[in-house]
């Protein structure tokens, strides 16, 4: 099997499993919904939804996505039974497996971010004025989160499927990412145009999103091999 077709077949397999086990998908949806609800009630009963500043709004938004994507992505390697990796090992190259997982998690996290934005704007509010910048931020943020946590979940799954470990390993590395994401989405709320600062931040996130999968591709064979 060549790289492309094996990536495709694992991706399709993962998507099919996801839709067959609808309760996993439903669980994540409910996770997002209930965390938005918690924030909504915490803000509503202090009458502070109206005076929510752009920065606080984006921090809350990206934190919800952070926690729900950690939960969702943790499944991607933990879900596979122990024996199945041996099976994959005979069939495909490790690069194909990590590429498929990266793609799958990218699609999943992107969907999750858009959904979170939908629920967030419905329940809390939607202060965004600059939708192009905000959409770019969501795409870049979803990519960054999914790539980082896919790699961390691969590492954590080798260290005895420890979900705490994934957070411990991933959270320090996600801090720089979250700084740029909140900056960008605050800019999307505050100003309608592309400022020089915004473009610089977008380039930073792009660089991050290129370096990460490259490293993951290079290092995954060592992580995966038994």
């Amino acid at each position: 099997m060549n790289l492309f077709s094996s990536v495709k077949s694992i991706l399709v397999k993962d998507l099919i499993i996801e839709f067959r086990n609808r309760y996993v998908l439903g669980g994540i949806l409910l996770y997002v919904f209930s965390s938005v609800l918690v924030i909504y009630f915490a803000l509503q009963y202090n009458n502070s939804i109206q005076e929510l500043s752009p920065v606080v709004w984006s921090v809350l938004f990206w934190l919800i996505i952070l926690f729900s994507s950690v939960n969702a992505i943790a499944n991607s390697f933990f879900r596979e039974p122990e024996g199945r990796f041996f099976y994959y090992y005979w069939l495909i190259s490790p690069q194909a497996l990590i590429l498929a997982k990266l793609c799958y998690n990218f699609i999943f996290t992107l969907g999750l971010s858009l959904l979170t934005f939908g629920i967030f704007s419905l329940m809390v509010n939607d202060p965004v004025v600059n939708y192009p910048v905000f959409l770019i931020t969501i795409v870049l943020g979803g990519t960054g989160y999914s790539f980082l946590f896919t790699t961390m979940s691969a590492i954590a799954s080798r260290a005895g499927n420890n979900a705490t470990l994934m957070a411990v390993l991933g959270f320090p590395l996600v801090i720089p990412l979250i700084i740029f994401l909140t900056k960008l989405s605050a800019a999307a709320i505050a100003s309608p145009g592309f400022t020089e600062e915004t473009v610089k931040n977008i380039w930073m996130l792009l660089a991050f999103n290129i370096v990460q999968p490259t490293l993951a591709l290079i290092l995954f064979p060592y992580i995966w091999r038994d």
Partner: peptide, 8 residues
């Protein structure tokens, strides 16, 4: 992985 990301 972490050092390269962190150094960046």
């Amino acid at each position: 992985f972490s050092l390269v990301i962190f150094a960046l």
